[in-house]
């Protein structure tokens, strides 16, 4: 019986190993090709895997895709982190029971929205609104509207994980602060948030990984042109967006263009894995025991 349980537990390890083996094996086909060099991959500012029919014309520099992912993620974090943390502080420290009873289920509803719906929301509402506000300053598909939608997507996660962290701060610390003449606001900002910092930072890092890996919203709303720029108003194909496009495209399995998606996938994997690792380190470094 225990053996069955152990098998189930080991399955997760097996799946992880399997994915890594698959990623490394397939991307080997890409990096091993005579048309691809590591130097170009990491420093090249053009990515034309989809556009070039002829392999000799294809350019495999990941920076345009990386910059697309970065633009969308940065905008998403700009939205999700402050509002998620402020909402969490409000819910945990100030909100009355009535307000909580409304706010918490609302956040859960947002968390339950399928990402494809948010993607359409970005295309049909956020994009046109931005164009209207700026008199056509934005492309129809752009990094900002995708970023805003991804931010909305990450908000409930930042909020609920931060609230858990704030909630875990012992009441004794709050009383200590009140006893020294802190106002409730000072207590939250100077004692409770610093005491919950490790949990809050790991919530931020998890949200960051989520935004980097988010696919459906960017595939719908961010556009299909990979350009190396910091301009958030233009089309911005992201790493995940490219992978989707490539799988949908007519490139056949076995071409270097096709294998390039594994190159991008392994880069994506390294980024999110790194984030998880940093999250663990932060937790360990800043965790305080209150027992």
């Amino acid at each position: 019986m225990v053996a069955v349980l152990a098998m189930c537990a080991l399955a997760t390890v097996g799946i992880t190993v399997g994915i890594i083996v698959m990623l490394v094996g397939q991307s080997w086909n890409f990096f091993n090709s005579e048309h691809v060099s590591f130097k170009e991959f990491f420093t090249g500012t053009e990515w034309t895997a989809l556009q070039s029919k002829n392999i000799d014309d294809a350019k495999f520099g990941i920076l345009p895709l990386l910059s697309g992912t970065f633009r969308v993620t940065a905008i998403a974090m700009l939205i999700a982190l402050p509002s998620g943390l402020i909402t969490a502080v409000y819910l945990s420290e100030f909100a009355s029971k009535k307000v909580r009873a409304v706010l918490k289920p609302t956040l859960e509803v947002i968390a339950g929205i399928p990402t494809v719906v948010l993607g359409y929301f970005a295309v049909l509402v956020i994009g046109p609104s931005l164009q209207w506000l700026t008199d056509g300053g934005f492309d129809a598909f752009n990094a900002t509207s995708a970023g805003i939608a991804v931010g909305i997507l990450c908000l409930p996660m930042v909020c609920s994980l931060s609230e858990d962290a704030l909630h875990a701060v012992p009441r004794a610390l709050r009383e200590g602060a009140y006893g020294l003449g802190c106002t409730p606001f000072e207590t939250s900002v100077k004692v409770v948030i610093p005491a919950a910092l490790s949990g809050i930072v790991s919530a931020f890092l998890l949200a960051f990984s989520r935004a980097v890996g988010e696919t459906m919203v960017v595939a719908l709303a961010a556009g299909t042109q990979a350009t190396y720029t910091m301009d958030p108003r233009t089309q911005s194909q992201t790493m995940t967006g490219f992978i989707v496009e490539m799988i949908k495209s007519e490139n056949e399995y076995g071409t270097v263009q096709y294998f390039s998606l594994y190159g991008v996938a392994i880069a994506l994997f390294v980024i999110t894995f790194g984030m998880t690792l940093i999250g663990q380190l932060v937790r360990r470094r800043y965790r305080e025991s209150y027992s």
Binding site: L173, E175, G181, E186, Y290
Partner: peptide, 29 residues
């Protein structure tokens, strides 16, 4: 009022900061 009436609690409740920062907390405020 609470500046004039200090309180020490049942269980020691130092803030998760340095020793110095704990004592400096009230004066800084």
């Amino acid at each position: 009022l609470r500046r004039q009436v200090g309180m020490v609690f049942q269980k020691p409740n130092p803030f998760p900061k340095s020793i110095y920062e704990n004592v400096a907390f009230g004066p800084r405020l």
